[in-house]
């Protein structure tokens, strides 16, 4: 499998004076046709990272270091015009609030048309046909092309946004909380839609969400972020069996169990740290039930432990035992 995205040590700051170090030294690899889920609570830097990878960071956010290789080009150093031409043909995005992601004064058709006109040499008839095919893929009537965004429901708009993201057959689609603003029923439709789309068209995806359950269902690989850093990375199937980082475990426990609706699920006590000053310690230690003196005195590295990439002094021992016994 070829690599679509190879990001190395990406750091993003907000502001210049007294900056917030929102994302620190994150490396991320996305392979062809791979769905990568990025989870964490609000403010952990997951969206900031996603936008930085697509070079959509807005001031005061700025990428201060790292490389972002996407299909062989370094997007961090790419000039404006080549970057513009690479956008959407290689990387497209779906935003959290599909409602506001469509231009209110243009018809849906016009918003499909402009992107195809400016990136391809398709004829007007081909453009319409392509737009209709895309809408069909997300189960929307082709008549909608003549409508304006305010005439459509939130779920429809979000499905249109997804169809729009796939129209040029990009290598990677970055989805930033695409279902967060929708109710559970519509959310389910969208998830089923995405699974179906994956069978019809080959593309990689970076799925950003705070909903670990959703990510475990959709993604091949799950990356858990906490306070601007990756704390755990492993395949979705093995994470379901063995979440290693105490934070991932806490996220798991905060999910309701459908087989035991009255069973206990817990929140995570405390709040994430202030990212103006990064202490020399495990950033999760103040909220961690397993924290030891080492955790409060040293910064744990992200270690490749074969079955998992993990940033924890305590549970890394458990991984060792787990791998050693071959369980």
């Amino acid at each position: 499998m070829s690599v679509i995205v190879q990001a190395e040590n990406v750091s993003v700051d907000y502001g210049r004076k007294n900056p917030v170090h929102a994302v620190r030294n994150v490396s991320l690899t996305i392979e062809e046709n791979q769905f990568v889920g990025l989870v964490g609570e609000s403010g952990c830097g997951k969206s900031t990272l996603g936008f930085a990878l697509a070079r959509l960071e807005r001031p005061p956010a700025q990428i201060i270091s790292g490389t972002i290789q996407i299909v062989g080009q370094d997007w961090r150093t790419l000039a404006a015009e080549p970057l513009r031409r690479a956008r959407w043909t290689e990387v497209s995005v779906v935003l959290q609030s599909g409602m506001n992601a469509l231009n209110p004064i243009m018809t849906i058709g016009a918003q499909f048309k402009d992107v195809m006109e400016q990136h391809t040499r398709m004829s007007p008839a081909e453009i319409v046909a392509r737009a209709e095919t895309m809408l069909e893929m997300v189960q929307i009537q082709p008549e909608v092309l003549g409508r304006y965004p305010h005439e459509l429901s939130g779920g429809m708009k979000q499905r249109i946004a997804i169809a729009l993201a796939l129209v040029l057959q990009p290598k990677l689609v970055i989805m930033d909380e695409p279902t967060t603003a929708l109710d559970m029923v519509v959310q389910r439709q969208i998830v089923e839609n995405l699974k179906e789309l994956r069978r019809q068209q080959a593309f990689s995806m970076l799925f950003i969400s705070h909903d670990l359950g959703l990510v475990l269902e959709l993604a091949d690989q799950v990356v858990v972020m906490y306070a601007g850093e990756v704390v755990e990375r492993q395949s979705a199937t093995s994470m379901l069996d063995h979440p290693w980082h105490p934070y991932t475990r806490a996220l798991m426990h905060s999910l309701p169990d459908p087989e035991n609706p009255k069973g206990s699920y817990e929140g995570i006590p405390g709040t994430p740290p202030d990212l103006h000053h990064i202490p020399t310690a495990c950033l999760y230690a103040p909220r961690c039930p397993l924290a030891t003196d080492v955790c409060r005195a040293q910064t744990p590295p992200l270690e490749d432990l074969k079955v998992v990439d993990l940033r924890c002094f305590v549970t890394r021992e458990e991984v060792g035992v787990h791998v050693g016994t071959g369980a």
Binding site: R58, N100, A101, D114, V115
Partner: peptide
């Protein structure tokens, strides 16, 4: 600051457009 402008940038549309 609207999302649709962010999306337009992501779409790689010409800046004047």
């Amino acid at each position: 600051n609207e999302d649709y402008v962010l999306l337009a940038t992501a779409k790689g549309l010409k800046p004047s457009w």
